[in-house]
Design a protein around this nucleic acid. Structure first.
Length: 767
DNA sequence: TATATAGTGTTTTTT
DNA sequence: ACACTATATA
């Protein structure tokens, strides 16, 4: 029997108020996951719905897995039939079943941000041969297209809209064509197309609306328009929609999250009940106090204040250190000191920072102090080159429909098939309206290429075809192994440095393990079905016990489908999903990555103006408010100890910057006493017109350049003979003091006149 | 076609 | 500082 007495009044209210729309405003650490899981259990125990009629949506696979586990331990039998998934995988499941109704093949592939980038790059390259494609241009279009899709603005809508821009339109148009041609959907499409499907196809809509009696949404503050529409559509019949979120923790605006979803929820869903959770069970009084003091400076928020029955605990510590090395050193030494008391394991510590670039020095300090650590994020596992290569092989072996994948690996490892050849094949494929891969198997196409090149291409096709025969026969992991071994991929890797090769092979090993695990899960599921865990042949009971199986049944069944599913699932996997409980390592990650996690002891590094809040958002509208929410998220990760660190100066992109204490620190009373000099300096920064002008320059060059390692004096002069490591002996002709460094002109005996910077050249004076 | 060199643009990034 | 990519060169 479900024990409601473990909940406080507000939590119990949220659990028991099952009918109609419910908005739960849950501050950090107020037990929102507990509310969600108990709510599901409560619905089941009271017979309000069967498990397959309940859907719980989260943002990460990890959160979905955790929620499923917790529901499992709460209700026991039947929990596996509850549809617990991320927004995106839920959409994949719906689309695999119905997407043919809006003109795509049900075996579509998913393009990640890297693929997206490649597509846009190709479009821009085809458009203008003289214009250079730089990253920011590419990024501009990707952001534009993604932003439109997030807001459900299709090509047709965009043409009519007042933000219409011809260039964006044409790129958007070509982008859509390209993806359609490859039967591919990007992440935003998964949501957009599902909404489109449910809007236009009555049968599909009614199927899900009839099934889903209760829908629960986690991290609601980070939903975008598309996600909002999706849940509105899915909950259209029963309208038992419960969303849980915290406007103070909305930190993904830059990815389309729309705070209006939470602020306007009550307007869109009639008769919404609102429950506020404010009692915090995670942090000490002092930590909460500090966090509250920071977040209360935001103007756009629903008012609430966390409180706790816990003790005040230890003071929040602030340390103003000299530079990034001292900061890293402080973290390492403090961890060592606390660890030596025997009361902690390394897993009790986390080190958070605003940007990934800050991780390097901390990592170094950990290495030097023998502190085991784990860095979350940076580059996602599945976005690493070797993994993406093998995925491209798998896609090609699977159906060869995705041109992007085929082109990616046709010359990896090197097969002597270059740019020109690929262009020729592409032209043939385009003019004949066939896939790139199909062109490879086309005799007429090969005739264009010439026998030597054609032979190389045939060899490639042969390799792919022989692996293709193994799909559905051999295990998934074996197929992957064969790709790595038979195509010469492993050899290619081993040509690099030893360290690099080991690293890559390790990653590929992890991919294979993932495949084995995946396959085992799949078999288990099949067995459960065979053992009558549910019976789809029983027509008298039209509702299967396992809702997922019903969706599967509509489209899946063979080994090829297992591969398709695997490819989709790993594309939707993120770095944090693979984070396993490991008590023996300190965790390092960005503040963004830390959301939803908690630790006994937290170090928050880089509490400086221009670092956190980050310099890039200072001129953005509402930019600082979003940074403040980020800061609030970071601080509320801590249970017992919170260390805030700030460096007086640090080296950023090769230049030294003087940095002020972050305004967030100054918002916490009593933490930091500024001395007169610093106040004066800050006021000059904030009020001086001259400085404001300089701030615009700030992006490009170091305004506060105080010391680049400059050689004070040279031990050689004009006329001296010097030796250079590479150019040998020469005579110094000129020395120019270039401010940062000396520029030395030397006439070398064998290489002629060269100009070089003294600090790099390391010239040696000869007598 | 493969490799060496110069040039470039650097916040965050659940999926 | 550093990684990534466009361009020149072998």
């Amino acid at each position: 029997m479900l024990d409601i007495s473990v909940l406080n009044d507000k939590q119990a209210e949220a659990v028991q108020c099952t009918e109609g729309p419910l908005l739960v405003l849950a501050g950090a650490g107020t037990g929102k996951t507990r509310v969600l899981t108990h709510r599901v259990a409560y619905i089941l125990e009271n017979g309000l719905a069967d498990p397959y009629e309940i859907m719980a949506i989260t943002f990460t696979n990890k959160a979905a897995g955790e929620m499923r586990d917790r529901i499992n331990s709460l209700v026991g039998y039947g929990a596996e039939s509850i549809w617990v998934s991320t927004f995106h995988s839920a959409c994949v499941r719906i689309l695999r079943r119905y997407i043919d109704r809006i003109g795509y093949g049900t075996n579509f592939t998913i393009y990640d941000s890297g693929d997206q980038s490649t597509v846009v790059k190709n479009i821009l390259a085809g458009k203008s041969k003289n214009d250079k494609i730089n990253d920011s241009k590419k990024k501009f279009y990707i952001t534009a297209i993604s932003g439109l899709k997030n807001r459900l603005i299709t090509l047709d809508d965009y043409k009519e809209s007042d933000e219409y821009d011809e260039k964006v339109y044409t790129v958007y148009e070509e982008y859509e064509e390209e993806l359609k041609k490859n039967n591919a959907l990007d992440f935003d499409d998964l949501l957009l197309k599902t909404v489109m499907l449910l809007e236009t196809d009555e049968e599909a809509r009614e199927y899900y609306q009839n099934r889903l009696k209760y829908i629960l949404v986690d991290e609601y503050q980070d939903t975008n328009k598309a996600q909002f529409e999706l849940i509105r559509l899915l909950s259209g019949k029963y309208k038992n929609i419960c969303v849980v979120g915290d406007d103070d923790q909305s930190i993904y605006k830059f990815r389309g999250a729309d705070i209006r979803n939470i602020l306007d929820f009550e307007k869109v869903f009639e008769n919404t009940k609102v429950v506020k959770l404010e009692q915090n069970y995670r942090s000490t009084g002092n930590i909460l106090d500090a966090a509250n003091n920071v977040i209360k400076h935001n103007e756009k928020r629903k008012s609430k204040a966390l409180w706790t029955e816990e003790e005040d605990g230890l003071d929040v510590e602030f340390h103003r250190v000299e530079n990034e090395y001292n900061e890293a050193d402080f973290v390492a030494r403090t961890i060592k000191r606390l660890k030596s008391t025997g009361r902690f394991s390394f897993g009790d510590f986390a080190c958070l920072y605003r940007t990934n670039a800050q991780s390097r020095h901390i990592e170094e300090a950990f290495v030097n102090n023998d502190i085991p650590y784990n860095i979350v994020g940076g580059k996602n596992f599945y976005q690493r080159r070797e993994i993406k290569d093998i995925i491209a092989y798998l896609k090609t072996v699977n159906d060869g429909v995705d041109d992007l994948a085929v082109k990616r690996i046709i010359n990896v490892p090197k097969r002597g098939i270059g740019e020109k050849t690929i262009q020729n094949i592409e032209m043939y494929a385009d003019s004949n309206g066939i896939n790139f891969y199909d062109a490879l198997a086309d005799k007429n196409c090969m005739d264009i290429l010439g026998t030597r090149t054609a032979k190389k291409v045939e060899r490639f096709v042969y390799e792919i075809e022989s692996i293709r025969t193994l799909v559905g026969v051999e295990s998934l992991s074996n197929v992957i192994s064969r790709i790595i071994e038979d195509t010469g991929y492993e050899e290619m890797i081993n040509e690099g440095t030893k360290e690099d090769a080991m690293n890559r092979m390790e990653n590929l090993g992890a991919l294979i393990s993932k495949a084995i695990e995946y396959e085992e899960d799949y078999r288990e599921k099949l067995e459960n079905r065979a053992n009558g865990a549910y019976d789809i042949t029983d027509v008298s009971n039209m509702k299967p016990k396992d809702a997922e199986s019903e969706d599967d049944e509509a489209v899946l069944g063979t080994g090829r489908d297992l591969l398709t599913k695997f490819l989709a699932d790993i594309t939707l996997m993120s770095d944090i999903d693979n984070l396993e409980e490991d008590d023996s390592r300190v965790l390092m990650m960005t503040v963004h990555a830390s959301k939803g996690l908690e630790f006994d002891n937290v170090f928050l590094c880089g509490m400086e103006e221009n670092t956190f809040p980050n310099r890039m958002v200072l001129n953005e509208k509402d930019g600082v408010e979003e940074e403040r929410r980020l800061c609030y998220v970071a601080m509320t990760r801590a249970r017992k100890r919170l260390y805030l660190l700030s460096a007086k100066h640090r080296m950023i992109r090769g230049s030294m910057y003087l940095l002020n204490v972050s305004r967030f620190i100054r918002e916490i009373p009593g933490l930091y006493k500024e001395n007169a000099k610093e106040i004066q300096y800050r006021e000059r920064m904030e009020n001086n017109d001259e400085f404001q002008d300089a701030r615009h320059e700030f992006k490009r060059k170091a305004v506060f350049n105080i010391s680049v390692e400059k050689i004070d004096s040279l031990d050689y002069g004009v006329g001296d003979t010097v030796r250079h490591m590479k150019f040998g002996v020469g005579e110094v002709k000129e020395i120019r003091n270039g401010g940062r460094d000396y520029e030395v002109t030397v006439d070398f005996e064998n290489y002629g006149v060269k100009k070089m910077f003294a600090s790099f050249a390391k010239l040696q004076k000869l007598d």
